[in-house]
């Protein structure tokens, strides 16, 4: 399938969305469209555009100031007379999610791991994303190599959600070298983050 690259680095909203719409309208068949942008708000706006058109979408932070949003367009977008472009300032609220285990709830760990995977997926679909997601104790297994939640977490990171994993915990589980998304944090930052949150979600 054809891959179209849209370079929107250095452009402010609504230009990344406008350029992506033009690329989608110009398609001649199914294609993968990759939009490159330099800020999290642009990631959110382009992601919302893809969601609105019903195209599967994911995003990733490639480096500081460089993000890519990838959407799978099954057909060209219809040319609208005037496509409304919303420049929503920011999609993050002051909510903190504390993930303390790789399993959600007690009873069966096998079931719990499935539930946690679903929780993180659904979290990434929230209209208002959390500000920070903290991972500690067994939660550290979710941000490291082999985790099935990496795609969802990278997508949220690209939209500006801080993904932070307890360093003591990574060390304890022998996962220090395996961190695959976000950054390492310590107990002082964990406590401050929880203390300053408007709302804490603990699955």
């Amino acid at each position: 399938m054809e891959t179209i690259k849209v370079d929107a680095l250095g452009l402010a909203c609504p230009l990344p969305v406008v350029k992506t719409i033009k690329a989608l309208e110009a398609l001649t068949g199914p294609a993968t469209v990759e939009t490159h942008v330099d800020n999290e708000t642009a990631v959110q706006n382009v992601t919302r555009l893809a969601e609105g058109k019903g195209f599967p979408v994911r995003s990733e932070k490639l480096s500081d100031g460089h993000f890519v949003i990838t959407m799978e367009a099954d057909k060209p977008a219809e040319k609208a007379e005037e496509t409304p472009v919303a420049c929503t300032p920011d999609r993050r609220g002051n909510t903190v999610v504390a993930i303390t285990s790789d399993a959600m709830g007690h009873g069966s760990d096998e079931l719990g791991r499935q539930l946690m995977k679903g929780f993180i997926y659904a979290l990434s679909q929230l209209e208002e994303l959390p500000k920070t997601i903290l991972f500690y104790n067994g939660g550290a297994k979710l941000t490291t190599e082999g985790s099935l939640s990496l795609e969802d977490l990278k997508s949220m990171e690209a939209q500006g959600v801080a993904i932070m994993t307890c360093g003591t915990c990574l060390n304890y589980y022998g996962l220090t070298e395996k961190l695959a998304v976000g950054s390492v944090t310590n107990m002082y930052v964990i406590v401050e983050t929880l203390a300053k949150a408007d709302k804490i979600i603990k699955p």
């Binding site: 307890c166 360093g167 003591t168 060390n171 220090t176 310590n186 107990m187 002082y188």
Partner: peptide
């Protein structure tokens, strides 16, 4: 935090 250490 004023100390950098491998372990927390």
């Amino acid at each position: 935090r004023e100390i950098t250490a491998d372990c927390g």
